[in-house]
Design a protein around this nucleic acid. Structure first.
Lengths: 140, 140
DNA sequence: CCTTGAAGCTACAGTGGCTGTAGATCGCAT
DNA sequence: ATGCGATCTACAGCCACTGTAGCTTCAAGG
């Protein structure tokens, strides 16, 4: 065989066919060679690159960051500090999101508790609690 | 004064003017009365509702869920179990997101460590580690 | 060689929740 | 009456896809 079809690439990486084409449009994958009839045929290096992209996406890197990472890979030397920095930035961002989600969780628990154990004919107090921002500790 | 302008509402709630109009377009806020010249004038009930929406958005409810909550508020009786359920669903979702973010964090830390303390002329190993999904414990 | 059906193709619209733009109009203070 | 900030509508753009329509190509079986 002289190449993987887009569907084969999709099966191997778990990335949908349409998404692969989308990545190509965004410049994350090169224009692959084609069969006579205009279908994409990929080599192993494209398979590797797509795996890289897929994994980075699972880590919630955005496509611009991924493009930057790919460019770094290709210039090899400059790569060191920069790749490092990008990954570290992401860690900071993720820690921040975790702490905000924790505050969120705490408040939702509060909202539900306001309502728990009360089941008269009144409108649900949870809704009221939801409107009452005063009760939150800090922002979300 | 016989009503708040959209800008006044914006200042009071911290919701941007364009966003308020967007909420109106989505049916979350009623068509407000107008001045002769066609500008929006809001009463206190709209202010309350917008505060509710803003708060719910900070809690990451999506607009459809918020619309549902508002509808529940208006039918008062049915409200109880449903408002409860929606809030509880959100708690489950948030807990799930927190645990996924924690896995993410752990892996990024791993990626950065792969690279730490190595600063020869080699391409950054963090990039390689990023491509190497094998090393992850579980999905993200 | 021919048929068939799965897989591929392009191009474009839609998603959610806004944000930004352009160009016109309005309301209030001076 | 004038000036200027606030507001108006309508539409395009953002991100990372996803879905649709309507077509063409490829590979395997007869």
């Amino acid at each position: 065989m002289q190449g993987h079809s887009i569907g084969a690439l999709s099966r191997r990486t778990g990335v949908k066919v349409t998404t692969i084409r989308h990545y190509e449009g965004r410049g994350l994958l090169p224009d692959p060679g084609c069969t006579g009839g205009g279908q994409r045929r990929y080599g192993d290096s494209e398979l590797d690159r797509l795996s890289f992209i897929a994994h980075a996406r699972q880590l919630r890197f955005d496509l611009d960051a991924i493009a930057e990472l790919i460019a770094l890979q290709e210039t090899s030397h400059a790569a060191h500090g920069d790749g490092h920095r990008i990954a570290k930035d992401r860690i900071i961002e993720i820690r921040d999101r975790i702490s905000r989600l924790r505050r969120l969780e705490a408040e939702l628990v509060r909202v539900v508790k306001t309502c728990d154990g009360q089941s008269d004919g009144q409108p649900c107090r949870a809704l009221h609690a939801l409107a009452d921002h005063q009760a939150c500790e800090g922002e979300h």
